[in-house]
């Protein structure tokens, strides 16, 4: 069990480092957003699961689930607002953006 926990936590830590590296290396603010939101969420999810496997005490599971729940609920909203702010701040034109797919309901 501890081997699995160590593996999960180490993988999560590596993904966290890669997310940080992505924030440094990606070319513009909107791309960096992807690194922080998606890779960050995945890293914290793995670390939390690893911690739960390592110490499956009562209080741990509930609190780790709370952390993950709050993150999954709040990060996309924050990312959405931030992306919109970035587009407004840099005056990126959005009117002539190509549209893919119609608005028909799926079958």
């Amino acid at each position: 069990m501890t081997a699995l926990a160590t593996l999960l936590i180490a993988l999560g830590a590596v993904i966290l480092v890669i997310a940080g590296w992505g924030v440094v290396t990606l070319p513009d603010a909107l791309s960096r957003q992807h690194a922080a939101t998606k890779a960050g969420t995945l890293a914290l999810a793995m670390i939390a699961f690893g911690a739960f496997v390592a110490i499956p005490a009562d209080g741990f599971g509930v609190r780790l689930a709370l952390i993950l729940g709050f993150l999954v609920a709040t990060l996309p909203v924050a990312s959405h607002l931030l992306a919109r702010a970035a587009v407004r701040e840099q005056d990126i034109p959005t009117d002539d953006v190509p549209r893919i797919g119609g608005s028909r309901a799926p079958d």
Partner: peptide
């Protein structure tokens, strides 16, 4: 916006 993204990390 870059700075706020860094805050997320």
């Amino acid at each position: 916006a870059d700075r706020v993204v860094a805050l997320d990390i």
